Structure formats: C-alpha cells, structure tokens
Simulated scan of single mutants.
Amino acid sequence: MEVIPAIDLLEGRCVRLYQGDYSLSEVFSENPVDVALQWVEQGATRLHLVDLDGAKVGHPVNTKTIETIVRAIRIPVQVGGGLRDRTGVAQLLDIGVRQVILGTAAVENYPLVEQLCAEFAGKIIVGIDARNGRVATRGWVETSDVAATDLAQQMAKLGVAAIIYTDIHRDGTLAGPNRDALRELASSISIPIIASGGISSITDLLSLLALEPLGVTGVIVGKALYTGNVSLKEAIQAVGSGRLQDVPPDLGFSTFA
C-alpha cells in the first residue's frame, strides 16, 4: 500500500482544513515547495496536491505553485481542485502533473468525464468526497443526493484510473479512517481505491492493510504528518512490512496482505 503525503494549497500556502471548512484552515508552511521536497526526502513515492482556491471557484488557481513543485521533484504528482473542464485538465497535464482528480465534474458532467477518460487514458482519477454517504461538491460546500457507491460504480464503468475516497467528517480530525465505508466501496468496484481522511497514527495506516486485497491500494496522509503524529519515513517502512505487532488486538485484524 502506497502512503501518499498531501499538500493543500490555499492562497499559495500549505494549509490543512478541519472537516473541509475553509474558515478553519491552519497554515503549516508559507513555502509548499519546501514541504514537497521534505516529503520526497523522507521517501514519498507520490504526492497529492489539492488546489483549495480552485475547488472553491471552479477552475485552477494555484497553477504556478503546482508547476514549481512538479519541476522541483522527481516523483509523480496528482492534483485536484476546480477541474471542471478539459482546459483545466489539459493545462495541468501539460506542466507535468501525472494524474488529475475530478470531483464536482464527476457528479455534474458525466459526458466530460467520459471524454477525458478516453482522451487521457490512465490519467483521470475521481475524488469522491462523502458526507454521511452522500457526495459533496464545489469544494465540499454543497452536498448532493448522489450516493458515494453509486458514483463509484458509474465512474468505474468509464475507465477512471482510481477512486480517492474522503470521509469529510474525518478529514483533518485525526479521528481515524472510516474502514466500514471503505470496505463497502471497495466491495462494489474493481478499480483501485485510495483512502483519505482521518489518519492519526501508524496504527491507522496498518489497519487499512486488511482492505488491500479488496483494492485499497493507497492512503493519503495530511494533518498527521504536519502535527508530527505520523513520521512519513516510519509510516512507509511500517506499511511496507505490515508489522502486526504495531496493531492493537482490539482492532480485530489477524492477518495482513
């Protein structure tokens, strides 16, 4: 399972939100490029970037910062936030972003996702951000009537490369991942799933290894890295070896793939 550090960009700075609330943002660095280099130095094999300004207004905003990060590091970068048309997607891919993440567009513009999957095969990821099982859109400001599992099944049929599943109520809270929701989602589709939201410890990461055989192939870690609750280097080592001794018996897992 791949451990993927997250950098959330707001007004050019590296921040973290609490449950997706822009008014509860906490600035962790004025220089996101330095943060990216730090994660690479600690062993990151992929970087997850979110353009929070873009997510709010509906088009990429922090493109220059993203390009600077892409040029500064040698690992794949995936980017989401405000990608609701072909122009924004093509712009990011042209500057070297490996994969782009569609969120609102997946709910509101099914034909666009279909077109992009055909044109940019393997480069389109869909981010499903759920609040009580329903998909949130427009920077998590609005909640649709679409069930997360229904959307995942629709997107899988279009050939998206992966699904990033975020439980909004756990994002930025350090409350642990929603394993039940992830298990339900993974059981409903056959494409890779990347878990996001709530990771607070290496134990949380190890608990997700039980879902790897179902297709949960990666996990995004944000706030826990910035608060020091999780060391990226140690997390990568632990997940790579699947150390059972690090998992409390009350989690109920006996084997890891």
Rank of each mutant, 00 (worst) to 15 (best):
Y226P: 04
L116W: 10
S254F: 14
R98A: 14
A118Q: 02
T65S: 15
A106E: 01
N132I: 00
S187K: 12
G172E: 10
M155D: 05
D53V: 01
S23M: 05
R74W: 09
C14H: 09
F256W: 09
P60V: 05
L102P: 03
R138V: 05
V70F: 01
N62P: 06
L185S: 04
V57D: 13
L225G: 02
G240I: 05
I194D: 03
A105Y: 12
F120T: 04
S25P: 01
V57W: 08
V77W: 05
A152Q: 10
C14T: 11
A106I: 02
R134D: 15
R84C: 15
G12I: 00
Q99A: 02
S201K: 00
S188P: 09
H48K: 04
P213G: 02
D204L: 01
A257V: 08
T63V: 15
P249R: 14
A36S: 07
L102F: 06
A195S: 09
L93W: 11
K56I: 08
A181Y: 11
I75W: 11
L251Y: 15
L208N: 01
A44K: 01
E114A: 04
Y226N: 01
V70Q: 04
S187A: 15
L208D: 04
L209Y: 06
H59Y: 15
D204M: 04
R13P: 09
D204T: 07
D145A: 14
F253E: 14
S241N: 13
V79R: 06
G82Q: 01
T203L: 00
L208C: 09
V3N: 06
R86D: 15
R138K: 11
D34S: 15
I220R: 00
P111N: 06
I220T: 03
G252H: 15
A106R: 02
G54K: 10
A6Y: 05
V40R: 02
A152H: 10
T227N: 01
P60S: 05
